Lab assay of single mutants.
Amino acid sequence: MDSLLMNRRKFLYQFKNVRWAKGRRETYLCYVVKRRDSATSFSLDFGYLRNKNGCHVELLFLRYISDWDLDPGRCYRVTWFTSWSPCYDCARHVADFLRGNPNLSLRIFTARLYFCEDRKAEPEGLRRLHRAGVQIAIMTFKDYFYCWNTFVENHERTFKAWEGLHENSVRLSRQLRRILLPLYEVDDLRDAFRTLGL
C-alpha cells in the first residue's frame, strides 16, 4: 500500500481520460470499502493502490481484502475508481471472487477503457463483470471531483476539469454501453419471453 493520498500531478496524469493515453502503463485504483447495515453504511477503509512487481492492481486489491475477516452475515460495498478498466484475466478473477463472496458488491468507475491489442478479449471481460453483478461506469466530472477531494493530496486546491473531460466521458460511456448492450438486449428478451410464458 502506498501513502494514503495520491500526489496531485500523478492523479491528473494517470486518470486523465484522454483519447490517446501514451505512456500510461500502470493502473491506479482508488477504493472505498463500506459495510452496509440496513439503511446506513459505515466506511471501513479507503485508499489507493497501483500495479506492483508485475501484479495487476485488481489482484492486489483482492489479496488485500481477502486478508480481512469479512463477516459473511453482513453486506459490504466496494467502490473502485480506476485509471484503466480491468483486463480480461483480472475481470475473470474479480468475477470469481465476487461469486465466492456474495455479501460483497462492487462498483467500478473507470477513466479509460483498456483494450489489449493482440487479444481483444477485454470487452468480454467487462461483460463477465457485468454478469457477476458489477456496476461499471465511466468516470464523469462528479467522480473526478470526489476522487480529488478524497484520495488526492490537493493542498486545498479546487479540482478543475481539463479540456475534453466531458466529451471524452460521453464518448467512453457510449463505447462501454455498446460493449454491455448485448447483455441488456438478452435480459430484455428473457423478460419478454417470461411475460409471454415461453
Rank of each mutant, 00 (worst) to 15 (best):
C116A: 13
C116Q: 00
F115Q: 09
Y114M: 00
F115I: 00
E122P: 06
D118P: 15
Y114Q: 01
Y114D: 12
K120M: 10
K120I: 02
P123T: 05
E122D: 00
L113T: 02
F115Y: 15
R119G: 15
R119T: 11
L113W: 02
E117D: 14
A121Q: 12
R119Y: 11
Y114I: 02
Y114A: 03
E122Y: 05
R119S: 12
K120A: 08
E122H: 11
C116F: 13
C116P: 05
P123R: 15
R119F: 10
D118I: 01
F115T: 01
D118Q: 03
D118C: 03
K120D: 06
L113E: 11
P123E: 06
E117R: 06
E117G: 10
D118W: 00
E122V: 00
Y114V: 01
Y114L: 01
D118G: 03
F115D: 02
K120L: 07
E122S: 08
E122G: 14
A121I: 02
P123W: 02
D118S: 03
R119V: 08
A121N: 12
P123Y: 05
R119M: 10
L113P: 01
Y114N: 00
D118H: 13
P123N: 07
E122N: 15
A121L: 11
P123Q: 13
F115N: 08
D118T: 04
E117T: 14
E117K: 04
F115L: 07
E117N: 13
K120S: 09
D118K: 02
R119K: 11
A121T: 03
P123L: 09
Y114F: 04
C116W: 07
L113M: 01
L113C: 04
E117Q: 12
K120E: 10
C116H: 05
F115M: 13
K120N: 12
R119I: 07
E122A: 12
R119W: 11
P123A: 09
A121S: 10
P123F: 01
C116M: 08
E117F: 08
P123M: 11
R119H: 14
D118N: 13
K120V: 06
L113Q: 05
E117I: 12
Y114K: 00
R119A: 11
E122T: 07
L113N: 01
L113F: 14
E117V: 12
D118F: 02
L113S: 12
A121D: 09
K120Q: 09
C116K: 07
A121K: 12
Y114W: 05
D118Y: 08
E117Y: 06
E117A: 10
L113G: 10
Y114T: 04
E117M: 12
R119C: 11
K120P: 04
P123I: 04
D118R: 14
A121E: 07
Y114P: 08
K120R: 15
D118E: 06
R119P: 05
E117W: 03
L113A: 07
A121M: 14
E122F: 08
E122I: 00
R119E: 11
F115K: 14
A121R: 13
A121W: 10
A121Y: 08
C116D: 00
A121F: 09
F115P: 00
C116S: 04
F115E: 04
K120G: 06
F115S: 03
D118V: 02
R119L: 09
E122L: 03
F115C: 08
L113K: 05
E117H: 10
E122R: 01
Y114G: 06
C116L: 08
L113I: 02
K120W: 14
C116R: 07
R119Q: 11
K120C: 13
A121P: 15
D118M: 13
K120T: 07
F115H: 15
A121G: 07
P123K: 04
L113V: 09
K120F: 15
R119D: 13
R119N: 14
P123G: 05
C116T: 06
P123D: 03
A121V: 06
K120Y: 15
D118A: 13
E117P: 05
E122W: 01
C116N: 05
E117L: 07
E117S: 12
E122M: 03
E122Q: 14
E122K: 00
P123C: 10
C116Y: 14
K120H: 13
F115V: 04
C116E: 01
F115A: 02
Y114R: 09
F115R: 09
C116V: 15
Y114S: 03
P123H: 08
F115G: 04
F115W: 15
E117C: 15
L113D: 02
L113Y: 04
Y114C: 03
Y114H: 01
L113H: 05
Y114E: 00
A121H: 09
C116G: 10
P123V: 06
C116I: 09
P123S: 06
E122C: 11
L113R: 10
D118L: 14
A121C: 08
